[in-house]
Amino acid sequence: MASASDESLRSRIIGLLTSGLATDVYPRADSHEQVQRLVCDLRLAGDDLEAKLKLAGFTSYPIEHAGITQLCETCMYYKVHQRFCELPELNVPVEPDWSCKLWRI
């Protein structure tokens, strides 16, 4: 179950994404090296939520890439019942139909 603080953070993220926060959706992090670089950048961003969303290329809709739909719902870091992204460098509540460049199945 999602906690009250998760819900308030989720609302904040929805607000940011729907009010036009420009995130780096492309290029996708296809190679292992790109993923590693991105994870390092996220670590440097620390607790800066907007910076993290921007770097990770968050969208509030799924992204189709290389013939596969990349959405939180199928991502390895997604906790289905808590609707939460468990990637330590993100660690934020999400929605199943969102997406980001760190998606992995």
């Binding site: 996708r28 296809d30 190679s31 292992h32 090296e33 993923v35 590693q36 890439h65 290389a66 596969i68 990349q70 998606w103 992995r104 199945i105």
Partner: peptide, 15 residues
């Protein structure tokens, strides 16, 4: 570097 204890992926799918 970066290959030990880290799942190697290509476009998000394990190699």
């Amino acid at each position: 570097p970066g290959t030990v204890f880290k799942t190697q992926t290509l476009m998000g799918v394990p190699k």
